[in-house]
Computed example of a mutant assay.
Amino acid sequence: MSSALVLAAVPIVLAAGLLALMKVPTNLQLTVTDSALVIEPQGLDRLWTRRDRIEVPLSAVSSIRIAPRTEAPPLPGRGNALHLSGIITAGPHGNTFWDVRRGDQLLIIQCLPGAEFDALVLQFANPFATLTRTRTVLAPFRQAA
């Protein structure tokens, strides 16, 4: 194979990779333990976010809601997150942790001062089911607080 052919194939392979990335949904697992919300990126999301686990103490969670992308915390200038506008934002960006593809309905977890992140902006296949399940588990904790 000639080097010219290989060089010509590189942009095609990169474009195909970006197209595939746009189609791959986020792969997150959110669980609630007795003391924390645990977010665990799975598969390629571990690579994109450069994290395998985030624990947010239940006492540090101020709110959990579904919001359109336009209501998500703004991205600061430069950050450590992988960010390709309109395609993927993943990883820590300022004081906010992101794992979002092209979705519009995002799960936003706001944290109290002193937590590792001010907010987590996450995309799930069914954010409303994730919100309902999480709020149901958090309800007894919130009543005791």
Rank of each mutant, 00 (worst) to 15 (best):
A144K: 04
I109C: 05
L120V: 09
R65I: 08
T134A: 10
R46F: 06
I108G: 10
M1I: 10
L138N: 00
G43C: 08
Q110K: 07
S35Y: 07
S62R: 13
P127T: 11
V13K: 12
V56Q: 03
L112A: 15
C111T: 15
A16G: 15
I64M: 15
L82C: 02
A8G: 15
R46V: 11
A90W: 02
G79R: 07
M22Y: 03
Q110H: 13
G17E: 08
P41Q: 09
V56S: 02
L28E: 10
D99K: 03
V32A: 11
T132C: 00
G94L: 06
T33W: 13
I109S: 05
L84Q: 05
F97A: 04
R135C: 14
H83Q: 08
S3A: 12
R51S: 13
V10E: 11
A9E: 07
G86E: 05
R69L: 15
D52H: 09
L106C: 12
R101W: 00
P25Y: 08
F124H: 11
W98S: 02
A129M: 10
A36L: 02
N126C: 05
L28C: 09
L75H: 06
G86A: 06
D34P: 01
R101F: 00
A4P: 00
L14R: 08
L14Y: 03
P113Q: 11
R101T: 08
A67W: 02
L18W: 03
S85V: 06
P76E: 12
R53Q: 14
M22L: 04
T134D: 05
A129F: 01
L7Y: 11
F97N: 03
V61G: 13
T134N: 05
T96A: 15
I87Y: 02
D52P: 01
V56E: 04
V121F: 02
R142N: 03
N27L: 14
N126G: 04
G114S: 05
S62H: 10
E55C: 05
A90H: 04
V137N: 00
P76M: 08
G43M: 11
P11C: 07
L106D: 11
P127C: 07
P57N: 08
I87P: 00
S62V: 05
I88H: 02
L106N: 08
R50T: 13
R135A: 15
S2F: 11
Q110M: 05
P68Q: 06
L18Q: 06
T70N: 10
E55A: 14
A15G: 10
I64D: 00
L47V: 15
A36W: 02
G17I: 01
L18V: 14
L18A: 12
V32E: 04
P113E: 09
L112D: 12
T96I: 14
P73H: 06
V13Y: 13
L120Q: 01
F124A: 14
G79Q: 09
N95L: 07
E71Y: 03
A60E: 13
V24M: 13
M22N: 08
R135Y: 01
A67M: 09
W48C: 04
W48D: 05
L138F: 14
G17H: 02
R46N: 08
D52G: 13
